Computed example of a mutant assay.
Amino acid sequence: MAGKSVFVTVGTTQFDSLIQAVVEEDTLTVLRDKGYTRVILQIGQGLFTPPDDKHCGVMLSYFRLKPSIAEDFSNADLVVSHAGAGSCLEALEAGKPLVAVVNDTLMGNHQTELAEELASCGFCYCCYPNTLHSTLAHMDVSKLRPYIPGQPKLLAQYLDSVINVTP
C-alpha cells in the first residue's frame, strides 16, 4: 500500500486558515511521519489556493465543491474537518478518525460546543487552526471511541440541551 490518506473539508463556506494550517511544512511533516502520504483538500469558497503537487513527501490535491463527498470520507484514513455538525457526523458515521477544527471567526462561535462535546466523549480530537499541528503531532487515533450511528434521539437530546429547549 502506498500510505494513508487524509481528507480535509471546510464545507461550503470559507475557512482559509484551516487549509493554510494543513499545508504548512510542519503539519505536512507530522502527517508524513505518521504514515500519511496523500492529502485531499475540499476548499469550498476559500480564497487561498493550496499547492497541487508533492510537498514534504505528501501528495496534495484539492477541489472546491462537488455534489457528494461521501466517497472522500469513505476513502480517507483520517478526516480533518471544520467543526460543522453535518461534516463531523458524516465523518464519524463513516467510522473515520476525526480532527474537528473550530472556525472561531464565525458568528456566535457555535462550532466550539459541538466539537468540544464530541472530543470530551472521546469520538474525535478538537482544535483550532493555530493548534492543528500540535494536535496532529500528539494524537493517537487508536484511543478514539467508535461512534455508533443511528441514534438520532441522542443527538436531538444533546442539541436540545445546548440550545436550552425543554420538552
Rank of each mutant, 00 (worst) to 15 (best):
A100F: 05
E90G: 06
L89F: 15
N109L: 02
S81E: 07
E90W: 02
S81W: 10
E93Q: 15
S87H: 07
A91M: 06
L89S: 10
S81G: 12
L106I: 11
K96A: 13
C88H: 02
N103W: 02
P97M: 04
G84A: 03
T105P: 00
G84I: 07
G84S: 02
H110P: 13
H82S: 03
A100H: 07
T105Y: 00
G108E: 13
H110L: 07
L98Q: 06
N103E: 05
L106G: 01
A83L: 14
N103L: 08
G95M: 03
A94I: 03
A100R: 08
V99C: 11
A83G: 15
G86H: 13
D104R: 00
K96S: 10
H110A: 11
N109M: 12
A91F: 05
V102R: 04
G108R: 06
H82W: 14
L98M: 05
G108V: 01
H82G: 08
K96D: 13
G95N: 07
N109Q: 13
N103P: 03
C88Q: 13
T105W: 00
V102H: 01
A83V: 04
K96P: 05
V101S: 10
E93K: 05
A100Q: 04
L98I: 12
K96C: 11
G108C: 01
S81P: 05
K96I: 11
A94Y: 01
M107G: 00
A91I: 09
G84Q: 00
P97L: 09
V101L: 14
E90R: 04
A85F: 13
A85Y: 13
G95T: 04
S81A: 15
V99D: 03
K96E: 14
L89Q: 01
H82T: 12
G108Y: 03
E93W: 01
L98C: 09
N103C: 00
E90A: 15
N103M: 03
V101D: 12
L92F: 11
G108T: 02
S87G: 15
C88T: 06
L92V: 14
G86E: 03
S87A: 15
H110N: 12
N103S: 05
S81H: 03
L92Y: 11
D104E: 15
A85R: 02
P97E: 06
A94P: 05
M107V: 07
K96V: 09
M107S: 06
E93P: 00
V99N: 07
A91E: 11
L89K: 06
E90I: 06
A91G: 13
L89I: 14
N109E: 13
L106V: 12
G84F: 07
E90H: 03
G86L: 09
H110S: 04
V102A: 09
V101G: 15
T105I: 00
V101I: 14
H82L: 11
A83R: 04
N109V: 07
N109C: 04
L106M: 14
C88G: 10
L92C: 07
S81I: 14
A91R: 02
H110T: 07
H110E: 06
C88R: 04
V99A: 12
E90T: 14
T105Q: 12
N103H: 01
A83Y: 05
